[in-house]
Design a protein around this nucleic acid. Structure first.
Length: 462
RNA sequence: GGUCGGAUGGCCGAGAGGCGAGGCUCAGGACUGCAAAUCCUGCCACACGGGUUCAAAUCCCGUUCCGACCUCCA
């Protein structure tokens, strides 16, 4: 089934059949976080979108090597260190943990490897040596190392811009740069800044170098997919391409970019003050619900965040979850997930999750009908297909990562609710509906919702 | 100035020449002691103006509005 996957490639601006470099294997490099602030939902949308890609590739039979980096040294981290009066590495560690926590809360699988920029200085120096040796980069003697953007003819092909159309930075200092658009591979150390020794003096990495060095280290000169947010196309990805291709590497075959989460129509950013931190949102919905919401729009579509839309998505998800739980009760077990043909077709079409959700809705309708008809075989098929779909979307409610309570008090709770339900059942038998309803209202006030079904009374915690 | 997106029903959100995606909300019905859950029915949308076509949300021309990037960005 893997042969039919189609993906959109930002470089060619079209959807095309996916052909891995090596049969049965896929190498993906995803630009992860620059750990200088807590993650907002835009950051984790990227994580969720590419996690779905990864899960789908795996389910399609590929052996996936998924590299997601951590950029743990950059200007903002250093600024923050000064501002917060703690070492830069403590800033990086603190926010890296915040990202890890957010990813875990949303069931984003840990990458195959998560390299940090500062752990790859050696590879960066080797790359710079190569680039200087072949004339595509230069060290003007001030401790900086720049890439000569005019040296690579294909510069800016990803963003389809012309070098001369770029508005050049007003503060470009041409004392050392040959061209104002030449960018720093390496920055000379300033007093108080962390630095590493190099043949050109002590300094620290520029922003783009780490991704070229790390992608090369773990995925080789040419690999299948490079991903990131839309806003990384320029300059970050263009500069990665410039560095890597100047080194003679093929670099990424396919470029995939996720769109933003917007707020009031605008891209989320800290400068606008409209960013919504993951930890804040998780006070209003469960991680699985936030993931469902973030994953439900197509990855290339902007999604406008609102608490109303989030709540709507949660309601939708709880219906699906409710079906799976009822099916599990009736079947006595949760069927293993299977991939339905409709779901597979949708996902193969450049990860058409919205279409896949329509498929899930249809399966659920059939499943619910089977449930009322007592058609256990039908229930089993529907539950298995839904579970298979939810697994790919990372929203399987039976995934242990989403397990809520430790079962220490579960038995006690079971017993107490059973006691209340027995009382209510007795009241209903003697047609004392006032008493029965009073019991229902009382436990509802405590958060226990009950449903009378043909098979008896079910309860769940709201 | 250059480059790139977007505007779809009360709301969210797909689609990309015909055969009404789907979800949420709402209204009605079935079921039910009543709820809840579920199922059924209903609510015929594509920014605006032209054009092409037997047929346009979809293609073409023009217009309006919104957003992104142009060296901090997921």
């Amino acid at each position: 089934m893997s042969a039919r996957l189609k993906l959109y490639n930002t470089a060619t601006r079209e959807v095309a059949d996916f052909h891995p470099l090596k049969s049965g294997q896929v190498g993906i490099y995803l630009c992860g976080a620059t750990v200088q602030a807590p993650p907002h939902i835009g950051h984790v949308r990227s994580g969720v979108n590419f996690d779905i890609l990864r899960r789908w590739l795996s389910a399609s039979g590929y052996d996936v090597t998924f590299i997601r980096n951590v950029t743990d040294i950059d200007d903002k981290i250093l600024h923050k260190a000064v501002h917060e009066e703690i070492p830069w590495w403590a800033v990086a560690e603190k926010y890296e943990r915040a990202f890890t926590d957010a990813y875990r809360a949303l069931n984003v699988l840990p990458p195959t490897y998560e390299p940090r920029a500062t752990g790859h200085i050696t590879q960066m120096i080797e790359l710079m040596e190569l680039l200087i040796a072949n004339g595509s980069a230069y060290a003007p003697g001030n401790g900086d190392v720049y890439l000569d953007v005019r040296h690579l003819k294909s510069y800016l092909t990803l963003s389809n811009q012309k070098l001369d159309d770029l508005q050049s930075a007003e503060d470009a200092d041409l004392t050392y740069k040959k061209d104002p658009r030449d960018f720093a591979l390496w920055k000379a150390a300033k007093p108080g800044d962390p630095s590493w020794p190099t043949p050109w003096g002590a300094g620290r990495p520029g922003w783009h170098l780490e991704c070229s060095a790390m992608a090369h280290a773990y995925l080789g000169e040419t690999f299948d997919i490079h991903g990131g947010g839309l806003d990384l196309i320029f300059p970050h990805h263009e500069n990665e391409i410039a560095q890597s291709q100047s080194a003679g590497w093929g670099f990424a075959n396919i470029w995939m970019h996720n769109a933003w989460v917007t707020a009031s129509g605008e891209k989320m950013s800290k400068s606008l003050g409209n960013s919504l931190q993951v930890q804040e949102i998780l006070k209003t919905v469960r991680g699985i619900e936030l993931r469902w919401y973030l994953g439900s729009a197509h990855y290339r579509s902007m999604t406008e965040f609102s608490f109303e839309a989030l709540e709507e998505a949660s309601v939708n998800f709880r219906r699906i979850e409710g079906f799976l739980k009822r099916a599990t009760d009736v079947l006595g077990e949760t069927p293993e997930g299977v991939i339905s043909s409709g779901f597979s077709e949708a996902m193969n079409e450049d990860l058409a999750v919205p279409t896949a959700l329509a498929v899930i809705a249809e399966i659920m309708r059939l499943g619910n009908t089977a449930l009322s008809a007592g058609d256990l075989a039908g229930v089993r098929v529907a539950a298995a297909e839904i579970r298979g779909a939810l697994n790919i979307l990372g929203c399987d409610p039976f995934d242990p990562i989403f397990a809520t309570s430790s079962s220490a008090n579960a038995e006690l709770l079971d017993g107490l609710v059973a006691l209340a339900l027995e009382q209510r059942a007795a009241a209903r038998v003697r047609k004392d509906f006032a008493a029965a309803d009073a019991i229902r209202d009382q436990i509802a006030a405590l958060g226990v919702v009950i449903e009378d079904t043909a098979a008896g009374t079910r309860w769940s915690i709201s």
